[in-house]
């Protein structure tokens, strides 16, 4: 029996109405909760990149990926388990430029620590 662990599924799909539902249905039908999901435009125009995190088992995930790949509108799907990739947390903050202007002594600190 495989233990449950986190998996990251990356999928490239056509940027069209309804495809997200088709992909997510692969999980909900099997009562698998999606822990996190992001959709962004990929390097290729008209193709979106889905990044989905789920908790599951090795053999189940292998099957899920095949079911995602089978959906029409999906270009490809790949899976990594949590320990196969290095992750780091990045935070983004939105700040009013006005507040920076009022405290211009903070600007160098921000630039040095957070802005690449």
């Amino acid at each position: 029996m495989n233990a449950k662990k986190d998996f990251i599924i990356t999928s490239y799909v056509e940027n069209k109405i309804g495809i997200l539902y088709r992909v997510l249905n692969v999980f909900s039908r099997r009562m698998i909760n999606v822990e996190s999901l992001t959709v962004v435009e990929s390097e290729r125009k008209g193709i979106s990149k889905l990044t989905i995190v789920i908790e599951s088992e090795d053999n189940v995930v292998k099957q899920l990926v095949k079911h995602i790949e089978k959906q029409i509108g999906v270009m490809g799907a790949y899976v990594q388990s949590n320990n196969e990739i290095a992750m780091s947390k990045v935070s983004l903050y939105k700040m009013f430029t006005q507040s920076l202007a009022n405290h211009d002594d903070q600007l160098p600190i921000l630039e040095k620590q957070y802005v690449n």
């Binding site: 109405i17 309804g18 539902y21 088709r22 249905n25 039908r29 029409i72």
Partner: peptide
């Protein structure tokens, strides 16, 4: 479309 997504090979509006 919502109702038939799980039971079609493809659907489109």
């Amino acid at each position: 479309i919502g109702m038939t997504t799980p039971c079609t090979k493809w659907n489109y509006q």
